[in-house]
Design a protein around this nucleic acid. Structure first.
Lengths: 260, 260
DNA sequence: GAGTGGTCTAGACCACACA
DNA sequence: GTGTGGTCTAGACCACTCC
């Protein structure tokens, strides 16, 4: 018994009943932190719901609500009749992080590779009719258009073409986009996208694209088109990209609602 | 009072407490049927939870469990302090459908087309090493494997192969997957996925796939792989699909909030 | 203030897993 | 059989919305 109070078991979590955040959320967050922090190893069995409830001083229903939340997030697995087990996000189980609201550079870095860019074209022009639609512009507005070959560890991976409204973006030069993350630049100017709609298709490579990417004409490419909006609801970017099908794997995680 | 018993209000649902299916699932299914059948129009306010509980003769907690299920599926919207409202899947409300936690059938319907399926293969077998990993199985477990040609308005659109653990899924026959939505079947058994990880790549069509899909060998296909989990954290499906690149456009919406 | 959903409790019984 | 999660109950208080 000596010294046990110095380190409480990993499923003991501080609770504040006076707090505005519900107790079951506090329990869930506490356990999630212990799981992600490695205090609760993968496969570990949690105490029984009744015991956990007693230890934490809450009702079993509250514990169940917390556990349901974590199971929904994939951090726990519940097996009727045998118990509740930790399902830690082991690095080797999630070989690649998720393609989310990030730009190419972050995406590649999160795969453990080094992103690069080579500018193929830079212009300041009027928007195409399509860009007028997607970026909510008038035909007389001006836009920046950047075309870059994107590389991962020096190998060609994608050709990316971005269009940004000059009115929202502010001044932009070719140097700004050479070997720099466009999303990083947007963030530096307080224009980080908070919402985006992205389309994905599969296309056969045209000769010009095939040449840039180092694949045979006709090779399968993942074609994406994305429109991003800033927090105040203005469109900030219309990006079109063609990824090498043999080197790029788009990953996403989808969640349903919550139990409540 | 005369004649009222002839047509009960649309939220009154038959219950069988002796049945093996939980009461809250019965309530949810009953309401879902009335919503999808049009008896409960879009925007309609449901009776208060306490009232619904009294009418149905169950506790409020049970009602809440049913409503949570439906809200999770997007059939209801709950507004704290004002009420619970029907959120019928109106086709015109979603001008741009999003590829989300839905199956092929819902996906195609939301595009205004009619989904179809032709079973190419059905088997009950042991999992492959890869399936052992992704579905957290042991090599001696049994899985159902379904391979189907999926059509939209009668035109071939994708070849889809799903693997489902027999232990979680329960009995499954070939008839269950002929011209039926697999996700619909999962929902009917209370196994709706609440979380999924999906990979997308672009590949060139192999001759066999090309034949099924009616494209030339080498045509670009959108290859997706998806693992779905139920609310209790058990993997329920490992699906691999190849979509025609010229006919399918995967759309998703990303938000800045949290995604994982 | 009246009515709504959101949270929480303390108990009970059932169904499943494992020895 | 014993212990586990799954379901269900009757009642309570809080927080929010709307009048």
């Amino acid at each position: 018994m000596r010294g046990m109070s110095l380190s409480s078991p990993p499923w003991v979590v501080p609770l504040n009943t006076a707090s505005a955040t519900p107790v079951y959320v506090q329990v869930a967050r506490g356990l999630a932190a212990r799981i992600e922090g490695g205090d609760l190893a993968d496969g570990t069995a949690l105490p029984a719901e009744r015991e956990l409830a007693g230890t934490l001083g809450v009702s079993r229903v509250t514990v169940r609500q917390a556990l349901a939340l974590l199971a929904q997030q994939g951090l726990l697995t519940r097996r009727h009749g045998s118990g509740t087990f930790v399902h830690a996000p082991a690095p080797e189980r999630a070989p690649r992080p998720l393609g989310l609201l990030t730009g190419f550079s972050d995406d590649i870095r999160s795969r453990g590779q080094t992103p690069g860019a080579r500018v193929l074209g830079f212009e300041c022009a009027h928007p195409t009719p399509r860009e007028v639609m997607t970026l909510a512009l008038s035909p007389t507005d001006t836009v920046y258009r950047v075309r870059r070959l994107r590389t991962a560890d020096g190998e060609p991976l994608a050709v990316e073409e971005s269009t940004l409204p000059a009115s929202v973006m502010g001044p932009l030069s070719e140097d700004d986009v050479t070997d720099r993350s466009l999303y990083g630049l947007l963030a530096a100017r307080g224009l980080s996208p908070v919402r985006a709609v992205r389309h994905l298709r599969a296309v056969n490579a045209e000769p010009e694209l095939a040449g840039w990417l180092g694949v045979s004409p006709g090779a399968a490419l993942l074609a994406t088109e994305r429109v991003s909006w800033t927090a105040d609801g203005r469109p900030i970017e219309h990006a079109r990209a063609h990824y090498r099908g043999d080197r790029y794997d788009f990953v996403m995680e989808l969640h349903g609602g919550r139990t409540g």
